Computed example of a mutant assay.
Amino acid sequence: MTEPGFDFHALTPEHQLDAIESVGIYPQSGLLALNSYENRVYQFVADDSKRYVVKFYRPARWTDEQILEEHAFCQELVDAEVPVVAPLVRDGTSLFHFNGYRFALFPSVGGRNFEVDNWDQIEAVGRYLGRIHQVGAARPFQARARFDLDTHLYQPRQALTHASLIPDGIKTTFFSDLDRLIDAISERWHTNWPIIRLHGDCHPSNILWRDGPLFVDFDDTRNGPAIQDLWLFLNGSRADQLAQLDTLADGYREFSEFPADQLQLIEPLRGLRMVHYMAWLAKRWQDPAFPRAFPWFAEAKYWESQVLAFKEQLAALQAPSLTLYP
């Protein structure tokens, strides 16, 4: 099972170099593949002695308009002095085409890993997320998708019905428990939140630490509830998560009103991410990069473990929502 229009096999090293040179940048080093599965991303040094990153977009995933909205949002954040990595503009555009492939170029930046147990860093992330959402609230995306149950729950549920990797012996139990989880999420979901532009996939690995946080990879940016960019930083016991949430909120409030009324969406969003992630792997399985990177996805014990994960998430949905300290 694969996405229509999938075609990375023709993206040879020679093709990559020709594409980069077509916009007047000439690599002087080899292309170092970076950790990306959805797209193809490489780092290189050019003849100006600068390091660059080139991203070749997965065919048929986003339209040109959707990609350009992502780029424009990143540039808007840079203009507002928010630390994000925006694509380079050459000859008036940031999205380039070469022999059927679309690509963008970025400055290569370095940094340390964000420390998920560092309270100062957590507060700083909250502060800058408040700034990102301050900019994102100015107007919604017009072309990019909205974060909703259809795209992140119902469509993934349909995709999983075609997943050939689910063992026959557990299919009935798997889908029965999955549907119970979907029903519970749907009952607790609400849409009475302001529609703002989000990072969309703001987990700790998408933050580099320099003198402060540097936000990267806006590939999943979309309209949605502000809490989507916050809950991924919560981990550990309930007491740990309450402390992390309070620290994030302290920083966030410096620039934006904290969305306390969206706290009840945290566990539904966690459930959405669980289902969406499984369906994403299933849809991409014919891409050779995926079996190499996620071999456990084809093992029966993975699917058996998901049945238990569904039950655990159902229990989390039934527990009281997190709240901020008084």
Rank of each mutant, 00 (worst) to 15 (best):
L214I: 15
L234A: 05
D91E: 15
W280K: 08
R112K: 14
S36Q: 07
I196K: 08
Y37E: 06
Y325D: 10
L322K: 05
S49G: 03
Q262P: 08
T63E: 04
A19T: 04
V84S: 05
I67A: 10
D229I: 10
Q262N: 08
L230R: 07
L265V: 12
R157S: 06
S94R: 12
A249C: 12
F141V: 00
V84G: 00
V216I: 15
A124F: 03
Y325A: 14
Q43K: 13
A143E: 12
I132Q: 01
L68V: 13
A282N: 09
L317I: 04
H15C: 11
E65D: 14
A124R: 13
P87V: 09
W189E: 13
D168P: 00
G224M: 06
D211N: 11
L11W: 01
Y154C: 03
P107F: 13
D217Q: 01
N235M: 10
E299G: 08
D287M: 06
P295Y: 08
L129Y: 03
Y252M: 06
A315K: 15
H152L: 14
E81A: 14
G136M: 11
I170P: 01
A260V: 15
S29A: 12
W296I: 01
L77P: 07
V54R: 02
L245H: 09
R197P: 00
E304C: 07
D211E: 14
Q244G: 00
F56H: 10
L263I: 11
K55M: 11
P156M: 05
L165H: 04
A315P: 00
G136K: 09
P140Q: 02
V54T: 03
E81T: 13
L68W: 00
D229F: 00
A184R: 10
S237D: 09
F258I: 00
R144T: 05
V275R: 05
A10E: 10
D91K: 14
W231T: 12
V23N: 09
W193I: 06
R197W: 01
S108G: 05
I182R: 04
A104M: 01
A33I: 06
R284W: 02
L11R: 02
T2C: 00
I25W: 04
E312V: 07
L181H: 07
A279G: 05
E267V: 14
A316T: 02
V23R: 12
G5Q: 08
F114Q: 08
P156K: 09
F175D: 03
I132V: 03
Q142Y: 01
D250Q: 14
K171S: 04
T191Q: 15
W296E: 14
